[in-house]
């Protein structure tokens, strides 16, 4: 099977867009952390890291 043609410039742009989306979501997460009591976020983190 032959590999399809790949537009590397387009892929780089998608990668950058995806990264920017993750950064934006990370802002939402950090903002949530700042307004959430330590007992609540750290319990969630503990469960996540189990």
């Amino acid at each position: 099977m032959r590999a399809p043609d790949i537009n590397l410039e387009e892929l780089k742009r998608f990668k950058e867009e995806n990264f920017r989306e993750r950064l934006a979501f990370l802002d939402k997460y950090a903002d949530w952390l700042k307004r959430t009591p330590n007992s609540q976020w750290s319990k969630q983190q503990k469960n996540f890291l189990k």
Binding site: R35, P37, N38, S39, F48
Partner: peptide, 17 residues
Amino acid sequence: MEFHFKGGKISLQKELN
């Protein structure tokens, strides 16, 4: 998140993972 940032020291209470 409640933390105190003073004199080069950050105080934080959390449930340890």
